[in-house]
Write a protein that binds this DNA or RNA. Structure first.
Lengths: 202, 202
DNA sequence: CTGGATCCCTCACGATACTG
DNA sequence: CAGTATCGTGAGGGATCCAG
């Protein structure tokens, strides 16, 4: 992509990761190294030529590194360089901004692992202490002292059970309809109360 | 722009501001309302048709608002909605990330007001207290208790005078060559010492 | 099966000219 | 000043094909 013709850190950053698909590619790699095929399945609508081009660009920019796994797992994986890892705060802010106008989820076709990402995004800054467990649809994850972990943790302070739409309204509107809460309800509500308005005021 | 086909706050956010020029447009408007022509001069390489299209998209998405100024200043200005203002943390993080691989500035063709933006970006999180004044090339700005203000403030704790390249090396490498510092040098150095490594390790 | 490269088609972008 | 009209180019999307 051509440059923006300005000496500006924002324009420069966008020259590196501003192309279509680039930041979504980084999002995929934030969960760890992935193979080419994993990236294709994680980004179904990207053309393979485009994926190869984006990977090449990001590699040339020092954001992504290509590594051959040693035998017997002889395959190549792509992973973020340390500089690429530093995009995490950028993507985190972008996600929090986007979430405010995203609307409720479809009940189908959510990506595996979405709950851990959602907890990390929406609640981890708010629930720095306590043990929260979530069983949402067919996903399970917990928040232990602000860190998301997989599965329902033992002796949680509070356990939340609902589906994806119920979870959305829980964090977005603080509506508890259709949500089953076991344990310290007040603790959960105090965390949610720290949430500002999340929906687009318009 | 077509969607990314995923229920994901990042993909959704990129669907709104992910197109070429969109975030730079928001950057321009973060300084306050601007007229169409001001935007053209601030983004010299954008085509006017493209600018019109991006403005229309951002307005439809609730990020930008178009307002007619009352007579006698009968002109239309564009400004960020509250939701658009909330992009400031995103752009801030992006700028800090991009600055790490940006390299030293050209001595010419820096945009007016760059110094205030640079102070805001690089030093305002670090210098929450104290009065720092800067005279860099033909730009003047100060940092008062962490807030950037225009001009050289009276009775500053420290006054820094150099050119843009000297300023860059001051914040990037903490090199003081070619930099004239009046006042509390130790205070300035303590702020700079709080800066981590800023350049791409590669 | 993984890891791409190639082709084609469409549309978005960039430059410029033009208008209310 | 604030855009719209037009047009050429090139990047992105989709499908297919090929090599290890």
């Amino acid at each position: 992509m051509k440059n923006y013709g300005q000496y500006c850190p924002i324009a420069h950053a966008l020259g590196i990761v501003g192309e279509r698909w680039s930041l979504l590619l980084v999002r995929e790699l934030l969960d760890g190294p992935k193979r080419y095929t994993d990236l294709v399945t994680g980004l179904p609508k990207i053309g393979t030529n485009n994926l190869a081009a984006r990977l090449k660009d990001l590699e040339a920019a020092g954001v992504v590194e290509k590594r051959r796994l040693p035998p017997p797992a002889a395959s190549t994986v792509y992973e973020l360089s340390p500089y690429g890892q530093d995009l995490r705060p950028v993507i985190h802010e972008l996600a929090r901004w986007g979430a405010r106008s995203l609307g409720p989820p479809p009940l189908h076709a959510l990506e595996p692992g979405w709950l851990m990402h959602a907890l990390d995004l929406a609640l981890s800054p708010l629930a720095r202490s306590g043990r929260f467990a979530f069983r949402i649809g067919d996903e399970e994850a917990s928040l232990v002292d602000g860190r998301p972990v997989a599965g329902v943790v033992e002796d949680a302070d509070v356990l939340v059970e609902t589906d994806a739409v119920g979870f959305y309204h829980l964090v977005a509107d603080r509506q508890l309809e259709g949500v089953r809460v076991d344990g310290d309800v007040a603790l959960l509500e105090s965390v949610l109360a720290a949430f500002g308005p999340t929906l687009l005021p318009a």
